[in-house]
Amino acid sequence: MTSTPLSDRELRAERWRLRIRGWSDFAGRFGRRRDGVIGVGVLVLFTMLALFPNLIVGPLQTATTAPGQPLQPPSLEFPLGTDDLGRSMLNLTVHGARISMVIGLLATVVTVLLGAVIGIVSGYLGGRTDTFLMRITDFFLVLPTFVLALILAPIILELVGSDAEIMGIPSTLVVIIVVIGVTSWASTARIIRSQALSVKERMFIARARVIGGGGGHIMWRHIMPNVLNLIVANTVLVFAGAILTETTLSFIGLGDPLLPSWGVILNSAQTSGAPGLGAWWFFVPPATCIVLVVLAFTLVGGALDDVLNPRMRARR
């Protein structure tokens, strides 16, 4: 029995058919997770705020363009009240979404890149490289990384200067992003490594090696696609962690006052004594946003983990 080999075009069409079936399969299974769908809804809403803050509330208000009196309670004119400089809390909170989400996104990219590369290399190469990399990983897992971040941030800031710009992004933000990334990749690396270890033993890796595939090629084309599921689910959870870390770092004063993320707003609420003055509207809006976004990421991450990594379901 002979089968005619598929032409290039048919092959490509078949590949797309499989890919689309995979996607719709995934969408169907994810759609049945109510918590995941609610999470996605919340995230879409906040992404809209982050993308178009100017359309929604106008340009970011500063100390000089503040339209109101300091610490006005919510009113028709200022639905969420004003801060200690007389800026509208609605304006600040919406713009805060953009700053917090951008820092969170970039920090997540750094974290996941570091973690995935270290995890895949460590798992695939094995031997001494693995021992060495995992020693470092364990070290970072034990370390109170938040305290490390807190010391690193001002030191790096002194190294690069606080008015500098790196690729058009103010150095204060870059430093926060890098510091979060450098201090939180370890658990990602651990998860990816353990999966890479088992993928490495599968037959197609041996085949790829036999036909002369190099280490880099195998890791990128064969290991990476097979750990992608884990990377995706982990990314979502890392995002939640990054937003929380940024908020906490900014809250204790490492944020940039000119770029008010939710953490920076909470910091100015604290330093201006808002809780003691009864000015709840100064911290409730940004705090609510943080809780909603982090909760949404956690729900989506949990649902993704269940849908993408069904074999690990017993874990939860």
């Binding site: 908020t247 906490t248 809250f251 705090a287 943080i290 809780v291 909760l295």
Partner: peptide
Amino acid sequence: SMPYFVIGM
């Protein structure tokens, strides 16, 4: 999902 200091505030 809530930072400690928010609970505190």
